[in-house]
Design a protein around this nucleic acid. Sequence first.
RNA 1: GGGCGAGUGGCUUAGCCCGGACAUAGCGUCAGCCUCCUAAGCUGAAUGCCGGGGGUUCAAAUCCCCCCUCGCCCGCCA
Length: 562
Amino acid sequence: MEDYDDPFKKRKNVIVRVLQEATHEQDVQLLDGGDHADLASTISFALARKQKTSPVRIAQDLVKIINDNPEFQATGARSEAAGPYINFKLDTSYLAESLQAAVQPGYGSLTKKGIRVVLEHTSANPNGPLHVGHIRNSIIGDTLARVFRKAGYGLEVQYYVNDMGRQIAIVVWGFDNLDSTRQEGEKEDAHIARVYIAANREIDKDPSITQQVNTLMQLVEHGDPATVKKFRREVSRCLDGFAITLNDLNVKHDRFVWESDFIRNGYTDRIIAKIKKLRQAQDEETLALDLEEFGFSNKYVIRRSDGTSVYAARDLAYHTWKAANFDLVIDVLGADHKLIASQLRCTMKLLGEKAPEIVHFEFVSLPEGSMSTRAGKFVSADDLINEMRKRAFNEVTIRRPELDEEMRKSIARSVGLAAIRYDIVKVTPEKSTVFDWKEALDFERQSGPYIQYAHARACSILEKAGTFSMCYIPKTDQEIALAKEIAKFPTIIERVASELHPHVLATYARELADTFNTFYHYEQVLKSEGDTRDRRLTLVRAVQNTLKESLETLGIDAISTM
RNA sequence: GGGCGAGUGGCUUAGCCCGGACAUAGCGUCAGCCUCCUAAGCUGAAUGCCGGGGGUUCAAAUCCCCCCUCGCCCGCCA
């Protein structure tokens, strides 16, 4: 893909070509030079084997050839041998090019790709409020959505509403049979959870209730108007509650897609008909797929013996619809969906359809064990948000007592949100985590507020600076270090979109803030004079803009004072 | 029992796909820094057989095999 014309990558590509020419090797991957250089090559080791010479000798010879190459000279880079390693050091021209891009609004945006992507995330069952496990899904999903937009993809974000599951039938049974009036000031989703938990307790006491729940499920599948209406009403109320939470988290969906629609519009029947024709189909009492040849030991059931569809059938119908309308399908799912997601992917391929890319994240548990809506054992996202805002408000009041209350409240909302989103997105999705209040409420060092603070500092300097002339050539070590960090941003966006790893962006934003804080400590900006002042102010403008773009891509407010 | 994921200083964590030059950072501990652009900050010190054992390689946290521990999953639930 021909993205944003990255000044660093441009030079790297030339060096790769020159190196290929000099060595007659195809595979000449360059690595990060660390402290030694901008880029480095270890090709000498491999050549030493073939040529039966010492790698040190080879490195020395190669450096001579490379430095004589006119194409290489044009990049402004120079190469030198350090033992067997070949180090490449770039001049600051690429930094100047990067900085010019970095002061522009929207820095980091890549060129439009003309690829339509559908991203599904959150999709929690509407049987109780979102908890800290669900919002790991929301925050990973929403961050990826922001990255994909920035990376130039056409994007639609969907929430798949499971409105015909057993859990919802239990909720409906609860409203029909238990004392279930809403309490004063109770949020809709919390109300649903209370009834759901109570209904489950009744079922535990009297298992015969299960029959009544089954009846409700059959009625809804066959489209009984009164039952459908009840299901829709409770699910909608729960979603109204979710909407408040998601809005507080700065998480946005473009469309809510209802599972039951895929029964009504005939998609599920159609997919069942297609599945029947597969060689792996077993159409007996139930309709199921035998996927053993693909390594699945259990049957993948599509239709029950009573003729009703199971979740898998509707999910296949939904994914077929997505595959038909988009170029790339991405789902963000919890680790508990790994098996069924790979069965779904396998089946989609058998049907000749585009299989979704799945981003799995591992579980969030509590110190006392795993969370359960059914058992009422969870920390709700709403509680977390409220606690975080309270903490942030206290903190702002201590630091900025002179600000009026409205202002402090507004800052506290942004800071609280930053703390939550960053705390969750900073760790790789593959790692299971234990929710820890103390850590979540931390506003220091590796936190969202820390990055916001660096941004606010930069804003403050710029505000005091007044007008200045842009000067894009960094000079001192601190200036160069900061410029190098700023220059990485577009590559980071590209990497996150291809690896589907949003924590990479979180790490980058933190490292950028670190580098700026160090710069801030060592180099005077406003008190410096002439070219130096212009140069440093240009850097501050570039870092401010890059921090802003990074924060906003993380769904965090880039506030200018705090 | 089988499948998937994780195991990195006291705690949390990056790097692993694509093997290279002293393993990233934070918390905590210790020692410093506000007549200086926002101290939600900065500097320095101590703390690592990168879960264990084999192997491949000039070179392994990274690749391969075995084992151990933890999490998730293996339903005519969703």
